[in-house]
Design a binder for these strands. Structure first.
Length: 648
DNA sequence: CTTCTGTTGAATAG
DNA sequence: CTATTCAACAGAAG
């Protein structure tokens, strides 16, 4: 048997545990030299907007992986080369006499194109490619094949296909040794790589990027880049990368069998200061932990649980992992999954601030300024200054921590798209791409399509309340008080709607709305009504991203006509007084008794009810305040704002 | 064709 | 705390 010289290319799998690809590479037999390589690819470094938190998480995970490799063999470490894989890998193959190149399969569109090129180059160079699936429960491409090459648009569809593909494999064994590396000199390598394209991260760079000064790093030793070498200041997140942290995180969760057995995602709280979920997603994203370790870890622990309340798919832990797979399978089977145009899966809706394309319809152009109202709403959303504390707190937490609860993502995504702002999910997706540590090329577009009712989900009349919804899990507004500290003096009653607080309350809170914290950038109810009406029209037109009308540009006109016909633009802002009256009428109508007697009867029941469950005496007063004073608060608030501004 | 289901809405009745 | 209504969607199953 001829000996082999193996180059293991790390990309999506910064771990040595549960790695089918790594196991495959080590079983090649008679390994003369083993090279664990990371390509510091400038098209990723410069071509994607990535925030500081994800950069630091990546670097920490690389350091962690490298020390794991060293633990297995003192001569080993992660070899970082600063160049495009398409250019440097053939050089490494030649210089190091590589016979096999091995990597974990990545089915997402961007990686697929790159990897096909590497496979082509390997064939030319006589290097054998070993590409092993291991990132998901089931190979997304195989799932697609099992579903007629269609995307899995429901979890049920995914489950049906995979039920015929056997059980989820057990985690692959963690290697206990590694072969030695061979010589690592590179006489032929260029000294310096020059990036010619646009640097999409210049806005967060405070210094010069020196990473590419030498292909092997500043000391010519394949070192892992640092934040300062990239010209970045340090990150703000408290989430630390690495396989050690990943496994600590997993075993923390598995320590409590009851927690694992009764885990229910929809029931977890998006408002709590400490994450109410496992926080495993960043580690899964970078492959610091294997998905089968999580799957079987949970399975095994649940075996030991004897109590009740065991949750099932889809809301349990297994359902969460299955959704991740479902999105990956859908992405692998869909062209242009990450955008609207050309995407068969995504419903076409005439959102504001959509992607712009060159005449050929392929290249996304730098976005020109759109409608000014849309632009302002988008910027306010991104910067956490919408005037709705719940949205602002979430967006500020997202930027600061690189993570927010899954349901908080729902809430801010709904607000930006179909809930209030009517702005393209492409814009929101980009912001998540930049700021989320756990950003995933399938889950994120998938979830944005879900929340915007573009695919996977369609009940557009279910809109998350900006005040009522966070109140369900936290009446006290902890998260708002932490991330919008200017509001922390407000009483619970107004914490999610400080613009409704009387001037005296605002003064006491030391925060004047419109000065110290923005007034709401829109009317929640009016925009919600308008959005629902427009979504209704969009569903009636039933166009998708790959429709001829979308590609030839006639879709916009169809929407304009439809909106005009249905009177969408007629929806006007209703004053609080009118709204109250309307609600009262509705209530009477529903009770089937339009008389005053019926009205009073109902009121009495309401009052008694409140007394029954009310634990605080304030609560009753609150209701009285609302009934009597809301209209005045709003109107007065607007007027008084002027007075205050005049004074200030 | 009809019926059922769909991880995670809000408001209200009991 | 749980069930129902609100006004009504797509996709899959039958």
């Amino acid at each position: 048997m001829p000996s082999s010289r193996v180059l293991y290319w790390f990309r999506t799998d910064l771990r040595i545990s549960d790695s089918p690809a790594l196991c495959a590479s080590l079983s090649l037999g008679d390994i003369e030299a083993f090279y664990p390589v990371w390509c510091w690819d400038p098209s990723y470094i410069y071509g994607h907007r990535v925030g500081l938190n994800r950069w630091s998480f990546l670097l920490e995970s690389m350091i962690s992986l490298s020390s794991e490799l060293t633990r297995l063999n003192r001569e080993q470490k992660l070899l970082v080369v600063r160049s495009k894989p398409q250019e440097i890998l053939p050089v490494l193959w030649k210089e190091w006499g590589i016979t096999h190149v091995v990597w974990e399969k990545d089915s997402n569109a961007y990686s697929k194109i790159r990897d096909e090129e590497i496979i082509r180059l390997a064939n030319i160079n006589g290097v054998q490619v070993v590409c092993v699936h291991g990132r998901h429960l089931y190979d997304p491409e195989k799932v697609g094949e099992g579903y007629g090459n269609k995307p899995t648009l429901t979890l049920h569809a995914w489950q049906t296909v995979t039920s015929k593909m056997g059980k989820v494999p057990k985690p692959s064994p963690t290697p206990t040794t590694l072969p030695d590396p061979g010589i690592t000199t590179l006489p032929q390598a260029k000294d310096k790589f020059k990036w010619e394209g646009l640097d999409m991260n210049s806005h967060i760079r405070t210094g010069h990027d020196t990473c590419y000064d030498h292909i092997l790093g500043p000391n010519h030793d394949f070192s892992i880049p640092t934040m300062s070498q990239m010209g970045y200041s340090s990150s703000t997140t408290s989430i630390r990368g690495g396989t050690i942290q990943a496994h600590q995180c997993l075993s923390n969760f598995l320590r409590d069998p009851r927690k694992v057995a009764t885990f229910s995602k929809p029931a977890s709280s998006p408002t709590s200061l400490e994450p109410s979920t496992t926080l495993l997603s960043p580690y899964l994203k970078f492959g610091c932990v294997g998905v089968r370790e999580v799957w079987w870890g949970c399975k095994d622990v649940i075996e030991t649980y004897t109590g009740g309340g065991i949750t099932k798919e889809p809301e349990n832990m297994f359902g969460q992992l299955q959704f991740r797979d479902m999105y990956a399978s859908a992405e692998a089977a869909t062209r242009h999954f990450e955008r609207i145009r050309g995407n068969h899966v995504s419903r076409y809706i005439d959102w504001g601030l959509q992607n712009q394309y060159d005449p050929s319809g392929h290249e996304i152009l730098p976005r020109p300024r759109g409608d000014l109202v849309d632009e302002e709403r988008f910027e306010a959303w991104k910067e956490g200054r919408t005037g709705f504390p719940w949205i602002d707190a979430c967006m500020r937490q997202l930027k600061y921590e690189g993570w927010i609860h899954h349901l908080a993502r729902h809430s801010v995504a709904c607000y930006l798209t179909r809930g209030q702002c009517y702005i393209s999910w492409e814009r929101g997706m980009e912001v998540f791409d930049e700021w989320l540590i756990d950003w995933d090329p399938a889950s994120n577009p998938g979830n944005w399509m879900w929340l915007s009712c573009s695919a996977f989900f369609s009940q557009y009349y279910r809109v998350y309340g900006l005040v009522s919804w966070p109140q369900k899990t936290d009446k006290t507004g902890q998260l708002v008080r932490k991330y919008c500290p200017e509001l922390k003096g407000f009483p619970d009653k107004y914490i999610y709607a400080p613009h409704l607080a009387p001037e005296s309350v605002q003064r006491q809170a030391n925060c004047i709305i419109g000065i110290d914290y923005p007034s709401p950038s829109l009317d929640e109810r009016t925009e919600k009504d308008r959005c629902i009406a427009r979504l209704k029209n969009a569903f009636a037109l039933n166009l998708h991203g790959d429709a001829a009308e979308v590609l030839d540009g006639t879709a916009a006109g169809m929407f304009r006509a439809k909106h005009a016909e249905s009177g969408v633009s007629e929806i006007k802002e209703m004053s609080e007084k009118e709204r109250k009256r309307e609600e009262g009428e509705k209530r009477r109508k529903r009770s089937g008794d339009a008389s005053l007697e019926g009205f009073f009867k109902r009121k009495k029941v309401d009052g008694g009810h409140d007394k029954g469950k009310g634990k605080e005496k304030d609560e009753e007063d609150d209701d009285v305040d609302r009934d009597v004073g809301m209209g005045e608060i709003v109107k007065g608030g607007k007027k008084k704002k002027e007075t205050i501004q005049g004074e200030a």
